[in-house]
Simulated scan of single mutants.
Amino acid sequence: MLPDNVRIVLVEPQLAANIGSAARAMKTMGLSELHLVAPRQWPHPDAAARASGADDLLAGAVVHESLIDAIAGAGLVVGLTARSRTLSAPQHAPRPGAAVIARESLQHPVAVLFGRERTGLTNEEVDLCHRLIHIPSVQGFSSLNLAAAVQVMAYELRLTMVDEDSVPQPACEWPPATADDMERLYDHLERALIRLEFLNPDNPRALMRRLRLLLGRARPDHNEYQILRGILAHVELALDGELPHQKRAK
């Protein structure tokens, strides 16, 4: 695993103390890339008090206004969720999920998302994820403290660094399409499907969510992403009557 390629993203954390505790959990396991999305208390002395020696992680934390900004450039986006999702990306327990993160971090940045203390990640935020991880807990008391969830995943990732032989070294010709690439593809796909009258512009959400899941499972590489964008662009040219044979017919 390449620790610098593993980005821990706290989405709208409410308490500075949890940010500090999460930073400490990360540092004890060799992780350093801390990203914060619209933190409520930041900067704040409670964060430094709870970091207990991980002040360098707090000083280097990257603050973003939106989650889209926080996952930009990531080839894999993984979300931690306290509840099972019926319509979602593939779900893993922490250990196999950590193996996926470790393997992919050898090739590109990976963003690991942790949701708000009270409500977790929204459905829209889960839709941005290629994989989900659920930490098993007793029935009726399933919600871990934010920093505790970070500690569990940081520990599992640390195990992969201790035993690097358990992580195969993949070879790939093209890097995967990044999270921001895929958002551009989804926007382009929605526009094209509306113009084809295949998608209802007044209610595009259900079908687009299915298509997100489909393409999220496929994990297109950058070359495949460019091919898909090229196909959509060609569809738009055809709809505008701008293909060479259409111009000749005029």
Rank of each mutant, 00 (worst) to 15 (best):
M1F: 00
L2F: 06
N5K: 03
N5E: 09
V6F: 00
V9I: 11
V11Y: 10
N18E: 01
N18P: 04
I19P: 02
G20V: 09
G20W: 08
A22L: 05
A23Q: 09
R24E: 03
R24S: 07
A25Q: 02
M26F: 00
L31F: 00
S32K: 05
E33M: 03
L34R: 01
H35P: 02
L36K: 06
V37P: 01
V37E: 05
Q41L: 10
P43H: 13
P43G: 06
D46R: 09
A49C: 03
A49L: 11
A51L: 05
S52F: 08
S52H: 10
G53A: 12
G53W: 05
D55L: 07
D56G: 02
D56F: 02
D56W: 03
D56S: 08
L57K: 01
G60K: 10
A61I: 03
A61M: 03
V62Y: 01
H64G: 05
I68Y: 04
D69I: 04
G75L: 02
V77D: 01
V78C: 09
V78R: 04
G79I: 09
T81V: 14
R83G: 00
S84P: 00
L87A: 02
L87G: 00
A89M: 03
P90Y: 12
H92V: 00
P94M: 03
P94Y: 02
R95G: 02
E104Q: 13
L106I: 05
Q107W: 00
V110A: 05
L113Q: 12
G115E: 06
G115K: 03
R116V: 06
R118G: 02
G120Y: 04
T122C: 06
N123I: 07
N123L: 07
D127W: 04
C129E: 06
C129L: 08
R131Q: 12
R131Y: 11
L132Y: 09
L132F: 14
I133M: 03
H134Q: 14
P136I: 07
P136F: 12
S137D: 08
S137G: 14
V138G: 08
V138W: 08
Q139G: 15
Q139A: 15
S142M: 13
N145Q: 10
N145P: 10
A147S: 13
Q151C: 09
Q151W: 06
M153K: 08
A154D: 04
Y155H: 12
R158A: 11
L159F: 01
D163Y: 04
D163L: 02
E164L: 11
S166Y: 02
P168G: 10
P168A: 11
Q169E: 12
P170M: 11
E173Y: 10
W174H: 15
P175G: 11
P176F: 10
A177T: 02
T178M: 12
A179P: 05
A179N: 07
A179V: 09
D180N: 15
D181L: 11
E183S: 04
Y186I: 03
L189P: 07
I194W: 11
I194T: 14
I194E: 10
E197S: 13
E197D: 13
P201E: 10
D202R: 15
D202L: 14
P204Y: 11
L207V: 07
R209A: 12
L211T: 05
L211E: 09
R212D: 03
L214E: 05
L214R: 02
G216F: 13
R219Y: 05
R219F: 08
D221P: 06
H222F: 15
L232T: 12
V235I: 15
E236L: 13
L239F: 13
G241E: 14
L243M: 15
L243W: 13
Q246L: 13
K250E: 15
